[in-house]
């Protein structure tokens, strides 16, 4: 029904979109968890309130991404996940801890709230660090050697900081008063981690393979690619400029750090996708070699084309319903 050459490409694109949506959306609520130790009890309640209606749906994008990998590229799925067995386990345990801590902290006896707060922070950190670690290992071609592990450790830290940055951006957007001012300070610290992380990844990627190196530095491509770093640089400067002035009167520009952080993530992701395409397991398997049968992909695509717009529609509806500053979170 569909073309066997185009289909894997469409699925790679769909998977890319879900990973990107996941990184931005769960990124901000993981970031809120990472910032927990810096906030006091009342502030933590408000931070939780700001992500309450969203975190569950945000995580579902991870399920979709891994589902698409599983169904569209079964061979790559096995390769990648068995190579990343331990970091995946750490991430899953982190996701479990923070997901349940979120619910338990409000329902457990009052005296037990603190341990659940710690679990929420620990779970968020484990998730963010292991995802960053997997990112690094992926860039390094899924090989476990000392240098690759060292690089992955660096990206682990960088991604955690990036998540805290977008998390701080979210808090600036969703709160006011003292907490908002605090979040501006957090963001000011976080932005340097983001610069470091994006710098490290950009420096390392072309060194991984000659192919990527050529893709970056040969002539027509370099002109195509140049806007990416330039735009990112401009964004960082403007973000820094904005953060020094926030909060402004009438809450103007409170949305900017969050939107700017999102834009940075999109740019970084775009650069990575450009470099690794057409490989799904770096330098080993292309998306066409790994794709499942055309017939199975067609079946999924038909459904996806109908359902994805609906999903996006009601996701937007939810963000619209819970727009504005976060207030007390309760079931009524």
């Amino acid at each position: 029904m569909f073309d066997p050459v185009v289909l894997p490409f469409i699925f790679a694109a769909l998977m890319g979109v879900s990973i990107l949506l996941y990184v931005v959306l769960d990124g901000f609520d993981l970031g809120v968890g990472l910032l927990f130790p810096f906030a006091d009890e009342a502030e933590r309640d408000r931070m939780i309130a700001s992500i309450g209606p969203f975190w569950d749906a945000n995580e579902t994008w991870l399920v979709l991404a891994i589902g698409l990998l599983l169904v569209a590229f079964p061979v790559a799925h096995g390769d990648i996940l068995t190579a990343l067995y331990l970091p995946v386990a750490v991430m899953l345990i982190g996701l479990i801890l923070r997901g349940v801590a979120f619910e338990f902290r409000a329902k457990a006896p009052l005296g037990h709230k603190r341990p659940w707060d710690v679990a929420f922070w620990a779970g968020s950190s484990m998730t963010a660090l292991s995802q960053g670690f997997m990112l690094g290992m992926y860039i390094m071609g899924l090989q476990w050697t000392w240098p690759t592990v060292a690089f992955a450790t660096l990206t682990a830290g960088a991604l955690a900081v990036a998540y805290s940055f977008i998390g701080a951006g979210w808090i600036i957007l969703k709160t006011d008063g003292a907490l908002q001012r605090k979040a501006v300070d957090w963001a000011k610290g976080g932005i340097w981690g983001v610069v470091l992380g994006m710098g490290a990844v950009s420096a390392a990627t072309p060194l991984v393979s000659q192919r990527i190196f050529d893709k970056w530095f040969s002539f027509p491509e370099v002109a195509l690619l140049a806007p990416l770093p330039l735009l990112s640089g401009a964004l960082v400067v403007s973000l820094w400029w904005a953060l020094r002035r926030l909060p402004m009167e009438g809450d103007r520009f409170a949305w900017y750090p969050f939107v700017g952080a999102t834009a940075l993530m999109v740019l970084g992701f775009g650069g990575m996708a450009y470099s690794f395409y057409p490989y799904i397991v770096p330098e080993q398997l292309t998306i066409w070699e790994a794709a499942s049968s055309t017939e199975a992909l067609s079946i999924i695509l038909v459904g996806t084309l109908f359902v994805l717009p609906v999903i996006l529609g009601y996701t937007v509806l939810a963000y619209f319903i819970f727009r504005g500053k976060a207030t007390k979170l309760s079931y009524d």
């Binding site: 309450g52 209606p53 969203f54 569950d56 749906a57 995580e59 579902t60 399920v63 979709l64 589902g67 698409l68 599983l70 169904v71 569209a72 079964p74 499942s292 199975a296 079946i299 999924i300 459904g303 996806t304 359902v307 994805l308 999903i311 009601y314 996701t315 509806l317 939810a318 319903i321 819970f322």
Partner: peptide, 22 residues
């Protein structure tokens, strides 16, 4: 298994997760 799991995510998981918030 692929299409079946994909349909589960698409038609069920997102529906529950988004409307649960509301």
């Amino acid at each position: 298994a692929g299409p079946l799991l994909a349909y589960e995510v698409l038609t069920a998981f997102f529906l529950e997760a988004v409307f649960l918030g509301i």
